[in-house]
Design a protein around this nucleic acid. Sequence first.
DNA 1: CATATATATTCAATAATCCTGTATTTGCCA
DNA 2: TGGCAAATACAGGATTATTGAATATATATG
Lengths: 286, 286
Amino acid sequence: MQTRALRTLVEIGRIGSFAKAADQLNMTLSAVSMQMKSLESDLGAKLFDRTFRPPQLTPVGRAVCAQAERLVSVEEDMIRVCQPGDRLSGTFRIGFVATASVRLLPKFLIRSGKLAPEAQFDVETGLSDDLEARVLSGLLDGAILTGSSTPHPRLSYQILRTERFVFAVPADCPCLTSDALFATLPFFHFMPQTGIGKVIAKQISEPNQKKGKRIYLDSVEAIMECVNEGLGFALLPEPDVQRYIGAQARILETPDPQTSRTLVFASLNSADAAWQAEKILEIVQF
Amino acid sequence: MQTRALRTLVEIGRIGSFAKAADQLNMTLSAVSMQMKSLESDLGAKLFDRTFRPPQLTPVGRAVCAQAERLVSVEEDMIRVCQPGDRLSGTFRIGFVATASVRLLPKFLIRSGKLAPEAQFDVETGLSDDLEARVLSGLLDGAILTGSSTPHPRLSYQILRTERFVFAVPADCPCLTSDALFATLPFFHFMPQTGIGKVIAKQISEPNQKKGKRIYLDSVEAIMECVNEGLGFALLPEPDVQRYIGAQARILETPDPQTSRTLVFASLNSADAAWQAEKILEIVQF
DNA sequence: CATATATATTCAATAATCCTGTATTTGCCA
DNA sequence: TGGCAAATACAGGATTATTGAATATATATG
């Protein structure tokens, strides 16, 4: 079935004449007549009572006409989605690394409503590596994740922000160096298979292997809760520590100031995704 | 644009592969590919990212796919309306003569909901002559009206019921004959240009011209109210009199028992309307 | 890393369809 | 009843869709 014929039907329904509709739509009367004939044969129903000279819509014809109006309006929506504009449109699947979602997602959703009202965003969270794999396999259009030291050649990365790592230590701990900390308190280590975890693992393994008790957790909030209870210390991004730190804990700067993680927006570096990536970046960059 | 291509798109969106979709829809892989290509050119947008081997839907592709699903479902509805079945479907415009609408319309609507749930009925009321003209000109698909003595050759009439006429007279009026009534009380005459009015006019003009004061009204309810107040008498269909008569009035049978009006269902006597008329008749006949 | 396989695209030929004019029919109106 | 407007029928030419074979390309496999 051809949507053009349905548009013609709608026009006929509106002005009640094949000839006038043909005129309106810039086509021949024959064409209109034939379109209606083929529509009737497609649907297997008489849409017009041709004993009237401007043929009258039959009851089913009227019902079909009403549906055709709906159908055409859906088609218009479809076309609208495809119109290239300066604003993003379409359905985007974006991944957020769990440790960023808490802080970034709400603002992202607010901004997307303002900056890309015609676009829809389906958001999912996960580990950086998983998200990267999902972008790579086309299951996601892009992801905010912890930048790794081994960028994938098929992905392009846009740096959103760099977050310094700091120690969160119980307030009553007198230690001033990381060596002292590791010697005296258990270390809450963010799961080493995650983006943050890898940065931490790298940091504490050099220059020499730190000793001491280790506890592995995959929740920033849980780790900070433990630190707040004086159960140990942790190395985490400064904004997260600031967010969760309590009165019974304090921040200790790392001796190595360049210890940090970068949050990046990763997407396929194909040509057509570039413009969209840029637009999404505008939303996510704040 | 071709709805078939949109169906193909939906299928691809569902199973994620051109080849499988082609298989599912019994067509060639080439055809699927071509359809998608022409869809993309129609819409002026890339729907697929072809750097993946089963091509992946782009964000706009996903949005278009969602719209296509809606569109196809509307098309299905359209086809459903046209499926010939034992039940009526379509949008019917039915006229009810005002004097019948009060009693018949509610039940008609109830029955239509049960007997023709897929059909829609747009009801309008009017005078029998106007309704007949509107059926004739195609503005109505059928009408319940007072049968006239001059049936139109292009219409077919189905008798729904015959309603005897009776006199409604004030309870304290001693008259027993119509002559005596006309001589002593004003006569409330239903508007003579209406269906009922014509029957009344014919009745009271034969065998001899009745004398006396006449008051013309176009509302059965108003006339009966006046009779109930003792202001005069009237000649009306028995069911209407029964409906509105009060304690201060009584019924007087006409001497001529065949004085009556018929309520008929009128519709065009074209071949294709016959079946529908029959179905509507089933609804309206109770 | 090269090969193999599955998958999609391209291309040319054929089939189907759609549209344009012209001629004809049909309902409507005076 | 004839005249007019409007729709249909029909044949031609143009456009479009589909097919099958050959080609290209991404993923999988060894």
